[in-house]
């Protein structure tokens, strides 16, 4: 079971601007794999290409060249319904600004990926309640997003991302809009889900504290992977210090 790749990224390039005009190469050949049940972080300064990379991996954007495979399925050329089905079944997404639909209750937001697949109502209810219990939001299910705190909103978003048991969970600065205690709770939650349910997580962040929860960190600089850091059996506090040190030299 360990070391089975869930996602492989091979020679990924992304160039902005049409041929002939002024072009900008945001990604200059990225290679890495994420194993099943792994918790990987991607770090880099603003403009390093980490968000571009995440958008490619999560099928929100198409690379100029290269291939991404998730769950043995090449995803870079998916289109239309296949793409929608893939997003709905194989991946979960958590955004910095929550991206909850403010017109729907927490329950309805969490259930959305299942209703999109036309899952029967009597199967949706236990699934939502189950994931809500795990994430500690069972009592907020009837509330609308604007009646929840930032931390609660992000847990609702996490529940929505997890409800269809995705192969990969992507996080784009999920703690960016949270206060420190909410951020800590959410990251603990990620670790727990990762440990107990073996969900593979890919987290994009520029915050060393968030990154210290990962098992492995890839540092991106100017469109390339510059360095890789593995936690191994290191306690989280020491790993945090190691990240800080790496960042200190890496960004020079």
């Amino acid at each position: 079971m360990p070391n089975t790749p869930i996602m492989t990224v091979a020679d990924l390039h992304k160039t902005y601007g049409k041929a002939g005009s002024k072009q900008y190469e945001a990604l200059k050949g990225i290679d890495f794999t994420v194993n099943e049940g792994e918790f990987v972080g991607i770090m880099g300064a603003s403009g390093s290409g980490k968000t571009t990379l995440l958008n490619m991996l999560a099928t929100l954007d198409q690379p100029t060249s290269g291939e991404v495979t998730i769950h043995r399925q090449p995803i870079t050329h998916l289109k239309g319904n296949q793409l929608a089905d893939f997003r709905a079944k194989e991946i979960g997404f958590i955004f910095q600004d929550f991206n909850l639909l403010e017109t729907m209750t927490a329950y309805e937001n969490i259930a959305l990926p299942l209703t999109l697949q036309n899952v029967a109502m009597k199967r949706i209810k236990p699934a939502v309640e189950n994931v809500a219990r795990q994430l500690g939001i069972a009592e907020f299910l009837t509330n609308y997003p604007n009646e929840l705190s930032g931390g609660q909103k992000q847990r609702v978003a996490a529940a929505r991302a997890l409800i269809n048991q995705p192969a990969m969970l992507f996080g784009d600065e999920p703690t960016g809009a949270l206060d420190s205690s909410s951020a800590r709770e959410l990251l603990d939650l990620f670790s727990k889900i990762n440990r107990e349910q073996a969900v593979s997580i890919l987290l994009v962040t520029h915050d060393p504290f968030s990154a210290s929860y990962c098992q492995r960190i890839l540092f991106i600089k100017d469109g390339r992977i510059g360095q890789e850091l593995k936690r191994g059996d290191l306690p989280r506090k020491d790993f945090y210090q190691q990240i800080l040190d790496t960042l200190g030299t890496f960004e020079q």
Binding site: G80, N81, A84, D85, F86, R87, A88, F93, N99, L116
Partner: peptide, 11 residues
């Protein structure tokens, strides 16, 4: 947002 969640164009 719905598009990111995996809603088909037809839906």
């Amino acid at each position: 947002m719905l598009d990111k969640l995996g809603t088909t164009q037809r839906q």
